[in-house]
Structures are given as C-alpha cells and as structure tokens.
C-alpha cells in the first residue's frame, strides 16, 4: 500500500517534469527562465564553446558588425574597465560580456525583457590585456563582436 502511494507521487512528479520539458522544447519557456538561477557552469567554463552552450544553447556565434563594444584601447587600471555593448540586431534576447584572458572569462550575462534595447553598460575587471567579446542572442541565433583592450595594471591581483 505504502509503496503504491510513493509510486503515485513519483509518477506525478515525473509527469510534471515531462510537461515542463515539452514546454521548453516547444520554445514556450527558455531554460534560463524556467531554472532562473545563476549559470554556474557557464561561469566556470574556460572555453568559449562550452560557455556559450551552457549559457545560450549555441556554440558558434557569427561575427556581426551590428554589435558595438565601447571600451578603452588602453586601460590603465584593469580593476575598472568600462564596457558598453550596444546592438541594432532585432529581437536581442540576451547579451554576454566575456574577457577572454581572465581566469574566469564570462564576466556578465544579461537577459533582456520585452521593450529593453540592445544596450548594457558595466565596469569589469581584466587580469591582463586581451579581447573583450560580446555575444548577443537574437531569435535563437548567436552573434559576436570583439575589441582588444591593453591593460597596464592587472585587475585581479592583490
């Protein structure tokens, strides 16, 4: 009797999970909205493809001239590097900011709600010189752009 009840609960649980899976597959809900949690695997990833797969569900962004990265050519203080990403790509859903040569390259990821423009501005740390990469997800596709920043004093030391 008791096992029967447990089984029923288990079945109910798996059915609910199944329905959720269907909703995700149908594109009704994006995984980030369902789970709504800090994407720890993407932040731990060292390689771009792994990171982007975890974060945005794609590996190979297409280079785009419609993404602009505003960042200094030379950053005297790597602890505070102002970075502004703007894009004219229609339907931008999310924007990721990546500092390629940082120990943890993914710095920030922004999910844009309805009516929010393809624009984010933040200040980031850069351990050493390297590219700042912006990846934009729009209509399920990934686009990217990069800009080199020379860092005079690294931002990750003591």
């Amino acid at each position: 009797m008791e096992t029967d009840v447990k089984r029923r609960i288990l079945l109910k649980g798996s059915m609910a999970a199944g329905a959720l899976g269907v909703a995700v597959a149908a594109g009704l809900l994006t995984p980030t909205r369902v789970i709504a949690a800090w994407p720890d695997k993407a932040f731990a990833a060292k390689a771009m493809p792994d990171m982007l797969l975890e974060l945005m569900g794609g590996e190979n962004p297409e280079e785009s001239a419609d993404i602009k990265i505003k960042a200094p050519d030379i950053a005297e203080n790597g602890a505070v590097v102002p970075v502004t990403i703007s894009t004219t790509i229609a339907g931008a859903q999310s924007i990721a900011v990546i500092a390629m040569n940082n120990p943890a390259p993914l710095v920030a990821s922004y999910d844009l709600g309805e009516g929010v423009e393809g624009f984010v501005s933040t200040r980031i740390k850069m351990g050493k010189s390297g590219d700042v990469v912006a990846v934009v997800k729009a209509d399920g596709k990934l686009y990217s752009a990069k800009k080199g920043v020379k860092v005079t004093i690294g931002g990750c030391g003591g």
């Binding site: 932040f43 602890a79 590097v81 943890a104 920030a108 844009l112 709600g113 929010v116 200040r123 980031i124």
Partner: peptide, 20 residues
C-alpha cells in the same frame, strides 16, 4: 526588464546601465 548574472569579474561597487 532586465536580469543580470554576474561573476566576481564585475568591478567593485558595480555600475549598471540599460535602456528600455
């Protein structure tokens, strides 16, 4: 409007700007 996920790679005393 906006959900931001950050690592420790965002500078101390963070600044954030966006438009809608």
């Amino acid at each position: 409007l906006l959900t931001a996920y950050w690592s420790g790679g965002v500078s101390k005393n963070p600044y954030l700007s966006f438009k809608f």
